[in-house]
Design a protein around this nucleic acid. Structure first.
Length: 593
RNA sequence: GGGGCGUUAGUUCAGUUGGUUAGAACGCCGGCCUGUCACGCCGGAGGCCAGGGGUUCGAGUCCCCUACGCCCCGCCA
């Protein structure tokens, strides 16, 4: 007697659960997958079998094979099974809503590979279960098609990136994860060194210095799709460990990096089945972006631009406006064209600007007979006319004003612009709108620390003509830095780097780093620059954010297989967690809590 | 560090003015059913009302604190 062949070991999978069509009718097939659903009609039993490619209906018909039909009643949701059977037509009962809906597999054999407890939520496309539960059972959530689709697309985008950069002559080179803590920038994740008591590694915030050293080494073009770590508070688009497309090029200027990235983004779009976006991408200087959009990552899919009316406001007769300007602040306005906003909605908008520190939101409705609203009477007639002219206002428009310190005005109106754009449905949802922001300031004064800090990072090259002002007027020095924004989100940033030891030392000095500190923290870089450093520059792209924006995912968590919650916790593994005191001893670390 | 919203069966939710034994749908378990595909019908099980404290004759409901989740400000070169 010959033993019956076993599924898997003897009979291999012939098709995925999404591949069978009418043309396969009559084929003898073997399918493996998860039991997605079961409909037991007593006589015959229908089971939907699922793998990541799709669903196939399997029918257990007692007239076909009584043993298999008997086993069908044991099947439950999420059991992992193998099926052998024959593809047959569903006749006139085609299910139009599924790609395999013309056929079904009449099972002659079934083998249960693994039984399953009832899952804590249904594995289905549309789900409204709380995210915490989904994250706790992430491996079940990842069985759902929408999440799988995002990760499939993420994989394709990563491959497209590699293919593109490879074709452009880039080398994919690795850099250490156990590296040196750097004083500038984000808070480091630290790793104690067992063999060097009292000393610590830091996980990289980015491979910045190593990629510059690759340039010094002469590799010319480097890239890496790499994890970076920053111990800062989380957001919907921020995780403590995230993935960058990191690249660096030698003997280049801004234009070379920008056009390369435009090509790379186009390759990614193409890999994701998107329409081509015109190149070159539009560009804005930092100053322009801030004054017109109130943001260094402007969403340029719609108008509602900010307009400075400080000069008019100063002589408007309205104390609040005049005082703001006299104290060195500004008054800017947004014209919400044709916005028919109720009083309660406008009150809600005042709360929106308060988030960014604005003490009030002045507004006026433009009517044929004149302005209506709280500022209508307090602003002089002449000023009203000038404002209407500058904003191109016509009856039916609503004008909003914020008067405050420049940063507050730009931040609050920049935010208001986005809220109004959403409220008035002005933002086209299916458009991908890239914009470069260039000419960032090199430095920013940190009131708390009482010193200048690098806006981008301390290795960013100042514009050559601005270098003489580095010592006397650091705030006016522009950087050779650039950010790429997509639909109002920052998706990448980079710069032409300093390759001259003396300029690098000058920047470090301006940042308040003593010779000793420079040597202790960045000595290896300054040393490297002594041995012939090529001019170089590069960029780091936020890969998770790119995936998020192209797939329409609502949070960065949906683009990462195993993400952390806002409190930087992995609720599935329960990390971070306490460790054995022996482990701590070995690491020469004491818990002070 | 700060602000906002939320937490009731496995899941999504309802729960009146503070008042008997906290409900529904889906899911789950059992039974019936040979053409279902959101199968149908019948029956059943299932609750530390996030945790702690308080007010009260009496708290899911009112008050305070805490925890957790989400969104935002600060922070994120």
């Amino acid at each position: 007697m010959v033993a019956e062949p076993k599924l898997i070991s003897d009979l291999k999978r012939t098709h995925s659960c999404g591949s069978l069509r009418a043309g396969d009718i009559g084929e003898k097939v073997v399918l493996f997958g998860w039991v997605h659903g079961r409909r037991d009609l007593g006589g015959c039993v229908f089971v939907d079998l699922r793998d990541r490619h799709g669903l196939t209906q399997v029918v257990f018909d007692p007239t076909v094979e009584a043993t298999a039909h008997g086993m069908a009643s044991e099947l439950r949701g999420e059991y992992v099974v193998g099926i052998q059977g024959t593809v047959r037509s569903r006749g006139h009962q085609i299910n139009e809503s599924m790609p395999t809906g013309e056929i079904e597999v009449a099972a002659s054999r079934v083998e249960i590979f693994s039984k399953a407890d009832t899952p804590p939520f249904h594995i289905e496309d549309e789900i409204d279960t709380g995210e915490q539960l989904l994250l706790r059972y992430r491996y079940l959530d990842l069985r759902r098609r929408p999440l799988q689709n995002i990760l499939v697309r993420r994989s394709r985008m990563a491959q497209a990136t590699r293919t593109f950069l490879d074709s452009e002559g880039f080398l994919e080179l690795e850099t250490p994860f156990l590296t040196k803590s750097t004083p500038e920038g984000a808070r480091d994740y630290l790793v104690p060194s067992r063999v060097n008591p009292g000393k610590w590694f830091a996980l990289p915030q980015s491979p910045q210095l190593f990629k510059q050293l690759f340039m010094v080494a002469g590799f010319d073009r480097y890239f890496q799709i790499v994890k970076c770590f920053r111990d800062e508070d989380l957001r919907a688009d921020r995780q403590p460990e995230f993935t960058q497309i990191d690249l660096e090029m030698s003997f280049v200027c801004e234009e070379d990096v920008l056009s390369l990235v435009e090509g790379m983004m186009s390759a990614i779009l193409e890999a994701d089945g998107k329409e081509a976006v015109p190149r070159p991408f539009p560009r804005l200087t930092f100053d322009e972006a801030m004054s017109r959009f109130g943001s260094d990552k402007p969403d340029v899919r719609f108008g509602l631009e900010l307009v400075d009316v400080s000069d008019i406001a100063r002589k408007s007769g309205f104390r609040v406006f005049a005082d703001a300007v006299d104290k060195g602040g500004i008054v800017s306005a947004i014209n919400a064209k044709g916005a028919d906003l109720s009083r309660s909605k406008i009150d809600g908008l005042a709360e929106e600007v308060a988030i960014h520190g604005a003490k009030g939101l002045a507004w006026a409705k433009v009517k044929p007979e004149g302005w209506q609203g709280p500022v209508a009477k307090v602003v002089s007639e002449q000023a009203r006319e000038q404002i209407v002219e500058r904003l191109g206002a016509v009856p039916g428009d609503v004008l909003f004003f914020v008067a405050d310190r420049r940063e507050v005005v730009l931040a609050s109106l920049g935010h208001l612009r986005l809220v109004l754009g959403e409220m008035l449905s002005l933002i086209p949802k299916d458009v991908l709108s890239f914009v470069w922001v260039t000419d960032f300031p090199l430095l920013d004064y940190d009131e708390e620390q009482g010193r200048w800090v690098a806006l981008h990072h301390p290795f960013t090259s100042p514009r050559e003509e601005d270098i003489p002002r580095l010592e006397k007027d650091p705030g006016s020095v522009r950087a050779r830095a650039y950010d790429l924004a997509l639909n109002g989100n920052e998706i990448g940033g980079g710069s032409i780097r300093i390759h001259d030891r003396s300029v690098q030392e000058m920047v470090f000095r301006t940042l308040g780093l003593s010779e000793e500190e420079q040597q202790a923290k960045f000595g290896f870089l300054l040393d490297a620059f002594r041995f012939g450093a090529p001019p170089h520059g590069g960029i780091a792209m936020g890969f998770d954010r790119i995936v998020m924006l192209l797939t329409g995912a609502s949070s960065i968590r949906d683009t990462i297989p195993f993400p952390k919650t806002l409190r930087a916790v992995d609720v599935m593994t329960d990390a971070p967690s306490e460790v054995d005191s022996r482990q701590l001893e070995e690491l020469h670390v004491k818990n002070v809590l």
